[in-house]
Design a protein around this nucleic acid. Sequence first.
DNA 1: CCTGCACATAACCCCAGCTTATGCCCTCAT
DNA 2: ATGAGGGCATAAGCTGGGGTTATGTGCAGG
Lengths: 308, 308
Amino acid sequence: MSEAEPAAVSLSHRVPDLGALELLIAVARLGSLGRAARARGISQPAASSRIRSMERQLGVALVERSPRGSRLTDAGALVTDWARRVVEAAEAFDAGAQALRGRRDSRLRVAASMTIAEYLLPGWLIALRAQWPGTAVSLHAGNSRVVAERLLGGEADLGFVEGLDVPSGLDGAVIGHDRLVVVAAPSHPWSRRRTELTAAELAKTPLILRERGSGTRQVLDAALGGHGGLAEPLLELASTTAVKAAVVSEAAPSVLSELAVGEELTARRLVEIPVRGLRLGRDLRAVWPTGQRPVGPARDLLGLTRGG
Amino acid sequence: MSEAEPAAVSLSHRVPDLGALELLIAVARLGSLGRAARARGISQPAASSRIRSMERQLGVALVERSPRGSRLTDAGALVTDWARRVVEAAEAFDAGAQALRGRRDSRLRVAASMTIAEYLLPGWLIALRAQWPGTAVSLHAGNSRVVAERLLGGEADLGFVEGLDVPSGLDGAVIGHDRLVVVAAPSHPWSRRRTELTAAELAKTPLILRERGSGTRQVLDAALGGHGGLAEPLLELASTTAVKAAVVSEAAPSVLSELAVGEELTARRLVEIPVRGLRLGRDLRAVWPTGQRPVGPARDLLGLTRGG
DNA sequence: CCTGCACATAACCCCAGCTTATGCCCTCAT
DNA sequence: ATGAGGGCATAAGCTGGGGTTATGTGCAGG
């Protein structure tokens, strides 16, 4: 079959939906379709048919059925592992989305910078829910100024900002660190350099970057100002994901937040290129109105982020 | 773990399905519901209604509609970022599943250890597809012995194994490194130690571990053999995901593959605890039958994994 | 041998999501 | 000013995937 490449049918037609993946994970854990069905609140035939159609869709036998129960096949174990990662991402999505809904009765109102809201908050919220179930959290994302306004206006109980200083009127505690890193594909010449890159070299190399106006772009512009300024980008893209994909395939480097490329670095899909004498770090801070140390749920969340 | 599954209606009821997430991402990129609809091969009303029902489901306005097009709201931008991560996980799932299907006409037949198949291969396959589209890959997962058998039996073109030595009859190249790391929740006392942990201390501490027989468990057992052997685990769980969750909440440490906890470490949901004088590293190797250097698609894939 | 458990099959129902057809609104060029 | 066009919404109707209940089959163990 000659799978025409442009309209390469969407993922949703080739990947089972979340319900099916959750069911598969339940089967893995419980060792029987029937028990998994009960755990997920559906009938046994529904589970049976769901798993079967998943096997048909993937073209792989996932579970070995027997009159004593069901075990995963080798392929099934692998598929289940991959499924868990999809479900984890979905859980993060859910945690974030629930917070965005911003119900009035939230016990904890958080205001956070975009980077923190995007990469870190969902994980914190999941941990918070695990540890103190029933804590309704609402989230508002915005830049440092907005975060400060909401805290001082009593519209938020706890804030998170990245940057060099704490907005006036607020107290804060450093809870982590973000750092822009120069990354390239493993096949790029820079990945094999023995000598460190210099800031000047970096400045004069056309990079793949997010479009002007993005936070990381601004930081980078400022940091390289003293080294002749940033060269004209080779490519400007709208999303970080697009940039990462382009770095892998276009064989040009980029500069991205460590938080955005952590996974790619550990999997060596991307390689970090050290740059001599360039400091592109930013502290991540929790902040609150001066004098008003967080209490209750705010204190709980703060604890999760820094090991309280 | 008693896991009392509090009927918290499944994720699939709270998270839009993949089709909807892909559509949202298309809207973000193209700036109009109609264009996004066309890009995804559905009609404009379908897209309109899909987005609308997603907004209803999440309880958040995602796009700002105007007679000139549609832009994301602030919340929409955040949701889209989270959606991208779900879709990325789904892409990895898809890439892996397609390879598992193991079509006979595959141009590249890979045999890999479980750890590599689980964490690294999907990413490589995505990159491979991006760079050389149309390379059909088939995957078989098994331990080192199985990988060697398949290579020597001509049933696989390229293998990947982890471990200290190269199986006899095979040549290999180191393509990466895996390392078991001791991890604890940020709130755990070990996270604030000023002095390094000793292997003996680690050995006598009850840990949260995967069940006996798992690969990482075996390596750990062996490494601590000289330090009095491993203490009785505090908890034995079936999946790595379950272990990670327990470490965060149960406040006991664990030892896991760096590949499994990379993301948690960069997000500081978990903290790595250095241990004095304990080497828990394993090389990751690509392998092939002695003398038969990989050519064609196998060489392409090999290049991706090590920067050829 | 019968009971219990686990999975499969069958018949039916419902609704999410798709399509086509059409209408409204705004902008821009004639 | 006006008509054309792009963009979103509404309406009506179809389809299929996923759900349910009821029932059948196969194997282990008291």
